[in-house]
Amino acid sequence: MADGGGAAASEKVTELSGSGVEKGLPRRGKASSGRTLNTAQIPLVASHPEVYEPCDDSFALVDALLSDKAQLLTLKPRLCMEVGCGSGYVITSLAIMLRQLASGTQYLATDINKHAAETTQATLEAHGVHADVIVTDIVSGLEKRLAGMVDVVVINPPYVPTPEEEIGCKGIASSWAGGLNGRQVINRILPAVREILSERGWLYMVALEDNDPLDICHLMSEMGHSEYNNLFRPDWFKA
C-alpha cells in the first residue's frame, strides 16, 4: 500500500466510512485479539473519565500502522510523534511495533487535556516503553525547534462535525468536537504538521468522509507533501 521509497513526505488518511457517525463508544476488549504482539494491550491501557478510550477509530489507525510495519522499519524513524494522544493506545502501539529496530527512535506525544497526558504516560509505563508527553495545543511550543525533524506523525483528530461552540471545550469533548464538517481542528493541525514533518516523513491521520479526506490530501500536497495514500476501511461500522 505504501510506496515507502519516495523521498517526498506522504500522508495517509485512514478514512472511516459511514458519514455523520459519532466517534464510537468505548468497546473495551473488542478487536484486540491477534494484535497484542505488536500493539498495546487493552487491559493495560489506562483510563480516566475525561479521556477518550481506544475505539474503532483508534484500532483503524493502529491497523494502518501495522500494515505499514515493514515500511516503517525500513524508514527507521528518528522521531515519532502523536498529536492528541488520549489514552496512549496508539503511540504505545507504535513504540512496541518499532521496538525491534533498536535504532534509538524517540517518541513524543501531546494532548490538550492534562488527564489524557497522564493517562498516556500510565499506558506507556504499563507496556515498558517511553515517550515524552506534553500538555499543549497541537504542537505549540515545539514547532520551531522540531521543524522538519519528525519522521512519523500519527493523529486521531477531533473529526466529528459539531456546532462551532463545542470547539475549545475542555476534557473529553476536545477528543471529538471538530466543528463545521469536522474540519475546524484538522485545519489547524495540518499546517502545524507540515512544519514538523521531515522530508521523508509520513503522516497517518484518521478522517471521516464528512471531513473531505481528498481535500485534506490536496491541502497537504499544496503544502509540499505531494504523495498520499488513502486507506479505506469499508468495514468500519459493521459489527
Partner: peptide
C-alpha cells in the same frame, strides 16, 4: 507535574 510539562496558555 509527574514528568509532564504543561505548555497550555
Amino acid at each position: 507535574d509527574k514528568g509532564i510539562p504543561n505548555m497550555m496558555l
